[in-house]
Computed example of a mutant assay.
Amino acid sequence: MFKKDLRRWLLAMLSMLVVGSAVVAAEKPNVVILATGGTIAGAGADATNSATYQAAKVPVDKLIAGIPQLKTIAEVRGEQVFQIASESFTNDNLVTLGKRVAALVKQGDVDGVVITHGTDTLEETAYFLNLVVRTDKPIVLVGSMRPGTAMSADGMLNLYNAVSVAASKDARGKGVLVTMNDEINSGRDVSKMVNLRTEAFKSPWGALGMVVEGKNYWFRLPAKRHTNNSEFDIEKIDTLPSVEIAYGSGNASDTAYRAFAAKGAKAIIHAGTGNGSVSSAVVPSLQELRGKGIQIIRSSHVNAGGFVLRNAEQPDDKYDWVVAHDLNPQKARILAAVALSKTQDSKELQRIFWEY
């Protein structure tokens, strides 16, 4: 009798352990990794090649398989959306990726999305998604400055951290994030400030937080409108209008501005010096182009923290121009393209630049 009771007890304990393990497994968050190529999927000829390599070579399944520790923090699956170097990212690529992310975050079995991306235009894609995907679920972009074949490769830890952040409940509602070099930055603010080194991505206003050994530490929150609070929706955007960037400098001419206008640009971002300054040789042409319906948006190419004040340097009210606030030229291009899908009114565009 005693042996039978002991056996029943042992079977009951074993059953509880099995059920308990299943519950723990079921409670692990589900993260989808969308791969688009870039250095994080790159390969060099030798372990010493940290700057000379071919980008977009390694498929997403291999990236995931190379980090078995991912299984301890989330149920992870991958999709290969593109396999390209990010300098070749087009508006059509942005829209395709945005629609896929939006579809995934609507699924009950997806708790977060990670996007592996080349670093050259990672900040542009992050900001685009921040504007057009309506969700409070974490969306995290990640790349690497060195290929996985290099002895100093940073992609493995970057991707582990990105999945950890995407799987975290405390990352919800903070907009699209960029996780690299142990930092968590807002996709709205962050930019690639330096090449060749792993600490390449910085925000002029500071990181939102850090991730250390799978744990998030937050220091500030985004102040601008994003994701769930955005008036834009990727489901209503199928194409983006042409917006071009013309670089201001000493001895600048109007050649680039006129060429972009002739090619059908709906807006031109003036990447000006200092406070978005415009050369006296260029001002008349920009006035003329604005008169033809092309939006003129003054930005600054100051590397970290360029801030353009309205009606400073140029009489924006008089010329009916828009200022980009603190957005760098490439981010201003993204916002202008998204905004122009909704309005052509310059006053509305200026409101949008203040709010986003």
Rank of each mutant, 00 (worst) to 15 (best):
F307W: 10
G272W: 08
K263T: 04
G214H: 09
K292A: 00
G209E: 02
L340D: 04
A246P: 08
S277E: 08
L335D: 15
N311G: 01
Y247M: 07
A271T: 09
S253Q: 02
K202G: 10
T239W: 08
G276H: 10
P315E: 04
I269S: 07
Q314T: 03
L327N: 08
E199K: 12
H325V: 15
S285R: 14
E231I: 04
Q330E: 03
V212N: 03
Y319V: 09
F307C: 14
R197N: 15
E231W: 07
D326Y: 04
A267S: 06
S300Q: 13
A261W: 07
R298P: 07
K236F: 13
G276S: 05
Q295H: 10
G272I: 09
A265E: 00
H301V: 09
G248K: 11
Q295T: 15
L240F: 00
G274P: 03
L286M: 02
P284I: 12
E288I: 08
L221R: 05
L340H: 05
V283P: 11
L335K: 03
G209A: 05
N229E: 09
G250D: 13
V338E: 04
N216W: 07
S242G: 03
K263C: 02
D254R: 11
I237R: 10
F232W: 04
A246L: 04
Y217L: 11
M210D: 06
W218S: 00
H325Y: 15
H226A: 10
I294M: 01
I296K: 06
A267K: 01
N216I: 15
S277A: 11
I296V: 06
I237F: 11
R298F: 01
G272E: 06
G276Y: 06
W321D: 15
N328D: 15
K292C: 03
A337G: 05
D326P: 02
W205L: 10
R258W: 08
H270K: 05
L286V: 04
D238R: 01
N328T: 12
A312W: 11
L335A: 00
S341K: 14
G306V: 12
A256W: 13
V283L: 11
A265R: 01
S341C: 08
M210L: 03
W205G: 09
F219C: 09
Q330D: 01
R225P: 06
T227C: 04
Y257E: 15
K202S: 08
K224E: 11
A256Q: 12
E244C: 00
Q314D: 03
L286N: 00
I269G: 08
I234N: 10
